[in-house]
Structures are given as C-alpha cells and as structure tokens.
C-alpha cells in the first residue's frame, strides 16, 4: 500500500500533460469563453473556444492554475475536443462526467476521449473528482451558454 497506489492516479501520461500542457495560452478572439473556478480549492480555468461555420471546434485554449490533476485534465480535454463538432464535444463531456462518478459507457464513447479516458481512474480518489471534471464542466458550460442565447 502507500504511495504505490498513487500510480493509479498519477500515470505517466497524466504527469506529462501536467508538465507540458497542450493548448495552454490565449486565443486572439473566441466565439465561446468561460472562467470557471472551484471555490473550495481555488482551482481556476479560463477556457476559450472558436467554432467555425459548421460548429466545429477550430481552436481551443486554456489558462488557469491548479493541481496536477486539474491542469492535466484541461490539457487532455482540449486535445480531445479539438477538431470535433460541438455536439460530439458535448457528448464527450457527458461521457467524462458520467465515468468520473463510475457510470459505464460503451467502449466507443471512451475511445473518443483519447488520453483523457485514463483520468477516469479518478473515481478511486473521490476527493479529487472535481479536479478532473472542472475542465469538462467548463467545456459544457461554454458551449451551452451560447445556445441559451440563441
């Protein structure tokens, strides 16, 4: 027991994403933007998305601060949804949120998450689930925010 169990959470791919995050930075202009924070721990994400005419995610970027898990999750999320259509991205967000709380999904849905599916091991660490889901919530909120206004 002890720290060996940590390997279940802090897999190499997660630590890689945290150390060298994908899509970290700011977009010059964005069609969708949201700042979301977790007030209990102070993690914060500023997510920007550019949808093209076909509602495809052309560009996505994030800034923010937080723990290894939240930073890796944001990196993995942006890498996974880049190039996806809005509806696909929303489905992925739902898949991730469901998986983080232990709900089963068809393998094809999981495969669509790319690297991010490894983070679903977060359910073994209940205190850290919110760290992993923050980025996906931000994605969902940012994309839905706009359609509310339509």
């Amino acid at each position: 027991m002890g720290l060996e169990k940590l390997n279940n959470l802090y897999r190499e791919v997660i630590l890689d994403h945290a150390a060298n995050p994908h899509n970290k930075g700011k977009l010059a202009a964005a069609t969708h933007q949201i700042i979301l924070n977790n007030p209990t721990c102070g993690d914060v994400i500023n997510l920007q998305i550019n949808l093209d005419d076909q509602e495809r995610i052309k560009e996505v970027a994030f800034t923010g601060e937080g723990c290894t898990i939240s930073q890796a999750s944001a990196s993995m999320m942006t890498a996974a949804v880049k190039g996806k259509k809005k509806e696909e991205a929303l489905k992925m967000a739902k898949t991730f949120s469901d998986m983080a709380i232990g709900k089963d999904h068809p393998q094809a849905d999981l495969d669509a998450l790319g690297d991010a599916q490894v983070l679903t091991s977060i359910m073994e660490f209940p205190a850290r689930i919110k760290c992993a889901t923050l980025a996906w919530w931000a994605l969902q909120r940012a994309l839905l925010q706009e359609s509310d206004e339509d």
Partner: peptide, 26 residues
Amino acid sequence: HLHPHDLATALDMEGIAVRAGHHCAQ
C-alpha cells in the same frame, strides 16, 4: 512547486490526514 492537493493526496495514501487549500484565508 507541487500543488498542495497533490501533496495531500500523497499523504492520504500514507494514512496521513492534512488540509490543503486556501484555509479560508484568500
């Protein structure tokens, strides 16, 4: 530079309960 939440999870795996966060003192 390890975030304290990562440290607290590591300590929890060793059976040690500590607090990590802003401690209501932002």
